[in-house]
Amino acid sequence: MTTPLLELHGINKSFGAVHVLRDVDFTVYAGEVTALVGDNGAGKSTLVKCVGGIYPYDSGEYVFDGHPVHVHSPREAGALGVEIVYQDLALCDNLDIVQNMFLGRERRSGLILDEPTMEQMAAQTLDRLSVRTVASVRQQVASLSGGQRQTVAIAKAVLWNSRLVILDEPTAALGVAQTAQVLELVRQLADNGLAVVLISHNMNDVFAVADRIAALYLGRMAAQVKASDITHSQIVELITAGRSGDIGLAPAHASTAADIDLDEVD
């Protein structure tokens, strides 16, 4: 088996007295979509923010492309090729598409911004992703629809020859057609050889594009399995109880099956 692009071992993270991540292991392969699932408060966003350098982790090992690294800031994560597309997209409404895509990493020629190069690169990136939905890259982001914004945010993430792209609920606020477009884009990223982590609550989305599924349960990694080896209801069990049959956490950490009525939580 090939070496994973990202390997986390025993990651711990606390906010004051609240222990959010407990000894989390997480593995992501290039060319695959790894879905990260878990209930609200399971620690998905915290884990992702640790990967992206937003939060420092308290202990654990961060191995990128076979090398142990320390990531303390978004810049360092960016230097490794880790990009996060947040749920709220983090776009500036008052800037145009090009300006948003290059925000914080503007191309300069001497003192001044190299606008022509940035415009060209932005257009090429959107083109490579087969994006046909925006009229001009000099459009203000304020004038874009939800799906277009998501597209811009994803294009921003892949502009940087990035190697690992993390998408935090990219389809949460989108309609049916736009969801399909975005999922297609997600699949294309992986097919282009990137490692993609997809956070989602929507199991249909997860099974549509994911190669691997990692389930978090109350700050612990319940299981990380191939999407083809697991069923819809097993995933739901992992999310809600931390355990499903043989897979999942040791019984001490998982809630017993009797606590959960599956019909209610699905």
């Binding site: 800031s73 978004p74 500036c92 409404d93 008052n94 800037l95 925000l103 914080g104 503007e106 001044i112």
Partner: peptide, 23 residues
């Protein structure tokens, strides 16, 4: 025309986005 100016607009438009962009 400068990156500094661009960052001023970015912070004014969406401070959180600017922070995450490493500004």
């Amino acid at each position: 025309r400068t990156g500094y100016g661009r960052h001023i607009y970015a912070v004014g438009g969406n401070r959180e986005a600017a922070r995450r962009a490493g500004i």
